[in-house]
Amino acid sequence: MDRRTRLTLGLMALLLAGLSALWMFQGLGAGNRGFILHLRATKLAALITVAVAIAVATILFQTVAANRVLTPSIMGFDALYVLMQTFLVVLLGNAGFAGLPAAGKFALDVGVMTALAVVLFGTLLAKGARDIPRMILTGVILGVLFRSVSGFLGRILDPNEFSVVQSVSFASFNRVDADLLPVAGGLTVLAVLAAWRMAPQLDVLALGREPAVSLGVRHQRLVLVTLALVAVLVSVSTALVGPVAFFGLIVAGLAHGLLRSARHAGLIPVAALAAAILLVGGQWLFERMLGQAATLSVVVEFAGGLFFLYLLLKGRIR
């Protein structure tokens, strides 16, 4: 890692620490400190977990796809997760599904999701390598298809209820399932560590298939392993806060801008820190300062969508 990367990382870590402290202690009254601190700590952990998961998933996915304008969500990863969850409910029956402990259920979700994503997106990426726009469009439409099927299954499960499983159309950073947090956090740490260990190989992977094969990287296996990591991370973020389509795009764009180097050893932590800073800082701003807790996700998605259009217009898609 060069000096610039280290300096950037250090400054970002400081900033995140500052924001976290602000989040924890700002406006802390005299009464009920323990309770409030616990509440805030849980939410902080959730925000950081989600931020890291989304950031690293996006970086990894962009590397596999050798494309800088994609995120796993644009390609329908989170829709697949929702569909898979719905499908498990149908398969195991609502009662059987509810009977499982939250952590076990989540582990099952992640396992099935990973297998599905590796097969589906592995095929898609292998076939689409020559025509990336067509591959993206396919992913987007697959996302629509998955959402429709989820909605359909939801209807069949419970015709009276309009949206049992039909997830909300935008994420919320407010309703985090605290039961899932330890498992989700653990999985995120493991996945990020794995990605970090693979960093030099990922650098080669990002060159594209032909150069990577020529340099003796086991391309197919590396792609599948990376996709599996992406699937785990997307499962984590979708389970915790719901579908987040464009946030990763902003974060990955920021990381590339800050570093001016394509080394994953630097990219991964910088993107993760940038995401955490944005989410913690943004949530603090909107929740404490503006009193609009729900707004952040919308603002983030809106900005991300515009950023995507901007990248398209700049011709950054290849």
Binding site: A66, R68, L207, G208, E210, P211, S214, R260, A262, R318
Partner: peptide, 11 residues
């Protein structure tokens, strides 16, 4: 081996 496809997404 150097193939013909030399467009690279990384900067």
């Amino acid at each position: 081996i150097l193939g013909q496809q030399t467009a690279i997404a990384s900067r």
